[in-house]
Amino acid sequence: MTQAAFFSLVAGALSGIAIYGLITQRHLLRRILAVNVLGNSVFLLLVALARRDPDYVDPVPHAMVLTGIVIAVSATAFALVLARRYYSETGLTHLPEDEE
């Protein structure tokens, strides 16, 4: 198994976990984390793609990952702020429709 294939599989597993978490978890923080994990799985896949040819490293996916990380960070930051604001406003850590 090549390195690329291995990391691709890991990325697939990670994204599965992330989506599972997004669906099953109600706590907002965990959901935000799930999205983060999903993002990381995609980045991992991109990095793996960059090495699909063993003799050559494709720079384009790297650039994409770098940009993606920046965006992911800001998105996560905003999500966290929003979750905190939501908590302080309502005292809830989950969305209203997820009430047991």
Partner: peptide
Amino acid sequence: DRPSLAAAMRYLLLALLGSMAYLLGVA
């Protein structure tokens, strides 16, 4: 207020899921 924050949160989660799926597709 509460409804708009919840709405934004819901939107954000789904939109991020969508972006990631899109990026995965691009990859």
